[in-house]
Simulated scan of single mutants.
Amino acid sequence: MSLTLLVEQILNGMQFGVTLFLTASGLTLVFGVMGLINLAHGSLFMVGAFAAAATAAATGSFLLALAASIAAAAAAGAIIEVGVIRRLYARDHLDQVLATFALILIFSEGTRWLFGSFPLYLSIPDALAGPVTLPGGIRYPLYRLMTIGVGLVIALGLYLLITRTRLGIRIRAGEADREIVAALGVDISRLYTVVFALGAALAGLAGALVGAIQSVQVGMGEPVLILAFVVIVIGGIGSIRGSLVGAILVGLTDTLGRFLLPGFFRLFMDNSAATSVGSALASMLIYVLMATILIWRPTGLYGARA
């Protein structure tokens, strides 16, 4: 195993982690502020990917595709918050799960009706195509590096939004005590719509960024949703910093596990068995990581202690 290959896999893990962060940060905002279990968050990831692919095919512009992914996901989020989610805040979590699961089915079948069952493809723009040479002579895809940079910049922007702006103060106050915030004259319904649309926009952007690496297809949001829940449990519900740290931990654990474990088992197994056992154990690593962290810190790395 060469050092170059190991560094490439670490960067792949970082890229996977920051795209998970974009999805998980919106989910943790909604969960932390509203106390809502939103299983349809992955569908908003899919909406962003399809909007980006369709816009890129129509205009040929990757920047317009990214803007369309954000706008489409935010609009879809605002519509379902006003039309459906707003009626669930006072309901039991089981009602929230059932209603948002129904939204998954609606989004999936609606997307299949609009775009068909065949996958779409979002091409990487020419300016970001090809590799770039990093220190040490390591060649790595420029688009993946751009994705890492975008994720980190958005993480900084979210931190500044939550800690330095009036909207951030209202979001944190609404998370702490929504009744007092409403009594002080803040329109809590409008605040919830803004938070939900913001979370949806982040998921849509993540979908567009991932859509240029893999195919855009119906159902692509469900696997990401599961990993996003793992991330917010590891990082702590309601914590943007926890989402970033948790997402990078999950990304690195999953990527390096799939890279290193088969090679480790080849030391004392034949190639076919080592690949099978290593891949199976690698798929379990993130859940082992989650269980280990919860044993050490039941509220997650940055979650508020009861």
Rank of each mutant, 00 (worst) to 15 (best):
S272A: 15
I154W: 02
G219M: 03
S272R: 14
V97T: 06
S25H: 03
A72K: 04
L120R: 15
G303R: 04
G300V: 11
F118R: 10
G238Y: 04
G130C: 02
E179T: 08
M146C: 12
A280W: 06
R87S: 08
L227M: 09
I37N: 12
G42F: 11
L20V: 03
L27S: 12
I240L: 06
I213N: 08
E222T: 13
H93A: 11
Y121I: 10
G110W: 04
S189Y: 14
F45G: 08
R91W: 00
A155G: 10
A49H: 11
D254E: 06
S215I: 00
D270K: 05
N38E: 08
I295L: 15
T299E: 15
F50G: 06
A201V: 00
A291G: 14
L27C: 14
L256Y: 10
L244W: 12
S279Q: 05
I79E: 02
P119L: 01
G278T: 05
A72R: 01
V233H: 12
Q217D: 13
S272C: 00
G42M: 13
L198C: 11
L152F: 14
F196N: 07
T163C: 00
G246C: 01
I293F: 10
G185L: 03
F101W: 13
A99G: 12
T55E: 03
A212S: 15
L6D: 11
Y143K: 02
V33A: 09
G137N: 07
G136N: 01
M34Y: 02
D92W: 10
A129C: 02
A129F: 12
L285G: 07
A102E: 06
A274W: 05
F107M: 01
L152C: 12
L120W: 11
T163N: 13
M269F: 15
A24S: 15
F21M: 05
V216M: 03
V30I: 15
G242D: 07
Y159S: 13
I248A: 07
D187F: 01
A68V: 07
H93V: 00
G157N: 05
L145M: 15
M284W: 12
E109W: 11
A201Y: 02
F101T: 06
L114P: 09
D95Y: 13
A67D: 14
T59W: 01
A203Y: 05
I154Y: 04
I232D: 14
E222V: 14
S243M: 02
R139S: 15
L98H: 09
V288F: 06
L156Q: 08
G26Q: 04
G26F: 01
P141A: 10
S276H: 00
A274G: 00
V82K: 14
W296Q: 14
V216H: 09
G199L: 05
I138K: 12
T255Y: 02
L281K: 04
F229T: 06
G204T: 04
T55W: 04
S2P: 11
S25N: 09
T55M: 11
A228W: 13
F45V: 01
L289Y: 07
A273H: 07
G35D: 03
A280Y: 15
Q15N: 15
S279H: 03
A51S: 15
F107V: 09
F229N: 05
A206D: 13
N38G: 07
T111A: 13
A40L: 01
G157R: 02
S243N: 03
A54P: 06
G235E: 08
V150D: 05
G219D: 08
Y287N: 13
M284H: 09
V288P: 07
P125C: 10
